[in-house]
């Protein structure tokens, strides 16, 4: 039983008099617990695919079944609920709320899910502990290093136990050492059964995944198993 099943997905944008075919018919199936990299140069349609996978956008045609429900023609509010429940985002630029401390940032998905305050504090604290930031709960994003910020973002992505962790260039704004830390964190998560999709244009990053999907001109150019995924260097700070 696959977690994600996509059939003939297309997405067109109308820009003035021009119609841009960002996706031209993509079919894909992703199982639970997979660690996947989606690769492609800019303009290939990988961002569009990521937006569709993350339920931030709806396709022009085609079907998208997530966990057995068709989300292709849901409205705005229903999609918001799906995002809240099923998807944890990790962005290139972290996208933390600058005025809130780490704990509150991680709490956010639970607030929108309507979790009572005591329970969500506890869960958020646990999630921060899991990414090795137990002692940084009350730091604001600008008081944290890039790697720490991204780990807060990972904690936020995981706090609601989503079906998928969707990471968009998660190491793009980090130096290579810190980037490795984040990738190591993903490996740990993957080993524990989380489904992880990393969108990237860096071959190095993609090589950590166990399956690599290459997008070109709005179509899947290749979909192959990575025979020997590269292991991220061990790190001490993220005890998991």
């Amino acid at each position: 039983m696959s977690l994600i099943r996509i059939q003939d997905l297309t997405r067109r944008y109308v820009m003035g008099s021009e119609t841009v075919h960002a996706l031209r018919g993509v079919s894909l199936s992703i199982g639970k617990g997979e660690y996947i990299a989606i690769m492609g140069p800019s303009g290939s349609g990988k961002s569009t695919l990521m937006n569709l996978l993350g339920c931030l956008d709806t396709p022009t045609t085609g079907t998208y079944e997530l966990n057995g429900t068709n989300v292709a023609d849901m409205d705005d509010n229903a999609l918001a609920e799906v995002r809240n429940r099923e998807i944890g985002f990790v962005f290139q630029s972290f996208n933390l709320l600058p005025r809130s401390d780490a704990l509150h940032n991680v709490e956010l998905p639970l607030i929108y899910a309507g979790v009572p305050v005591d329970e969500r504090r506890e869960k958020a604290r646990q999630a921060l502990t899991n990414v090795g930031l137990a002692d940084r709960t009350h730091h604001k994003p600008n008081e944290l290093s890039g790697g720490q910020r991204q780990r807060v973002a990972v904690a936020r992505a995981l706090v609601n136990n989503p079906s998928i962790v969707l990471a968009d260039e998660p190491t793009g704004n980090l130096d290579s050492r810190t980037g490795e830390e984040i990738l190591a964190l993903f490996e740990t998560l993957s080993r524990r059964g989380n489904t992880i999709i990393v969108v990237t244009h860096e071959e190095d990053v993609a090589q950590h995944a166990r399956r690599i999907i290459r997008i070109r001109d709005g179509l899947i150019a290749a979909d192959e198993v990575n025979p020997n995924p590269r292991a991220a260097m061990k790190l001490e700070s993220a005890q998991a």
Partner: peptide, 16 residues
């Protein structure tokens, strides 16, 4: 606008 985007991505509905 960015903050609104983040909140929506995380699950904030229109009403929220």
């Amino acid at each position: 606008t960015k903050e609104i985007g983040i909140r929506k991505a995380i699950g904030a509905k229109r009403r929220t």
